[in-house]
């Protein structure tokens, strides 16, 4: 048989590596373009706008760090800052603890497993505004509000949930935690399922108790899942908006700004006061916080 070697000239002109790169980038081009225009450009432009005074009508006017100076000098900003961190610092651990407890026990039952899981997941796929309004109705004074009616029939005092500067923020936080619970449960259960059963069997034969198994095996092996959820949930709480806006529509972020998070403040500065420069400065602060917190959490929970 004659040996026919393909001559180097007859092969494709581009190397395999180049051809592959072109192919990959052909697919990536569209999303990259899309994100550049609708995500990255506005994000970067926000940094520029934060140094300007702009009311949408006249062109932006450069004012240096005036927006930041005004923001850090205003009492309202620091109130909003405290609120935002209250959502984050209380909301994230409570929601994780709750979802882990539910996932841990839900993972062990067979009867009604699918039904219960669906029940927990339902709030996550429900429109936030609809949910906000239903909870708002729950929190009404008796006889309209379910919770106060129950409290009343038990002979206990009434709570002014959404109209109290003390209770409004926790009341809204409960709604937010409840809304995100289903997602966290699903993710945690997937994490629990991925731990091989033999790890538990080996520990049981070695005589290790349930609590020690949880502490020494389950939690350490669940760490990647936990890291993901901590970061994900923190970002969620730092960006909380829907629940607050819908549950306090009469005075968004009220009473007296006691529930107002950063995102709502940005929204109001931009679209009620039309102070785009100031809103951009607030956005830059939010961005910086999000970045710092995410990096900090990834660093704390890193694999050593």
């Amino acid at each position: 048989m004659a040996m026919t070697q393909p001559s180097p000239q007859s092969g494709p002109r581009l190397s395999m590596r180049t051809r592959r790169a072109i192919w990959v980038w052909a697919f990536l081009a569209l999303p990259v373009l899309f994100y550049s225009v609708i995500r990255f450009y506005p994000t970067i432009d926000a940094f520029r706008l934060s140094f300007t005074n702009w009311n949408l009508l006249s062109p932006p006017e450069y004012v240096g760090v005036q927006n930041y100076r005004d923001m850090f000098a205003s009492a309202e900003f620091w109130q909003v800052f405290r609120n935002t961190f209250a959502y984050l610092i209380i909301g994230t651990p409570i929601s994780l603890l709750l979802s882990f407890t539910v996932a841990y026990f839900l993972d062990r039952i067979r009867f009604g497993h699918g039904f219960l899981r669906a029940l927990y997941f339902l709030p996550y796929i429900t429109t936030a505004s609809a949910m906000g309004w239903v909870w708002r109705w729950f929190y009404q004074p008796a006889p309209t509000g379910v919770i106060n009616s129950v409290l009343g029939s038990l002979g206990m005092g009434q709570l002014d949930f959404l109209r109290s500067t003390t209770w409004a923020l926790p009341s809204i936080m409960v709604t937010a935690i409840w809304a995100g619970l289903g997602f966290q449960i699903i993710i945690l259960m997937a994490g629990l399922r991925s731990i091989p059963q033999t790890y538990y069997e080996a520990a049981r034969i070695d005589g290790v108790g349930e609590f020690a198994i949880l502490r020494k095996i389950t939690l350490p092996l669940l760490k990647p899942t936990t890291v993901f959820l901590v970061v994900f949930s923190s970002i969620g709480f730092l960006r909380i908006f829907d629940q607050v806006y819908n549950m306090t529509t009469n005075d968004p972020g009220g009473p007296l700004g006691s529930t107002k998070p950063l995102v709502l403040m940005i929204y109001q500065t931009a679209f009620n006061s039309y102070q785009m420069g100031a809103a951009a400065a607030q956005t830059v602060v939010l961005f910086t916080i999000l970045l710092a917190i995410s990096l900090l959490q990834l660093w704390i929970l890193r694999t050593r």
Binding site: E201, A202, R204, I205, D206, G207, V208
Partner: peptide
Amino acid sequence: PKERNLAM
């Protein structure tokens, strides 16, 4: 299992 004093 833990009371059986076995190892697996």
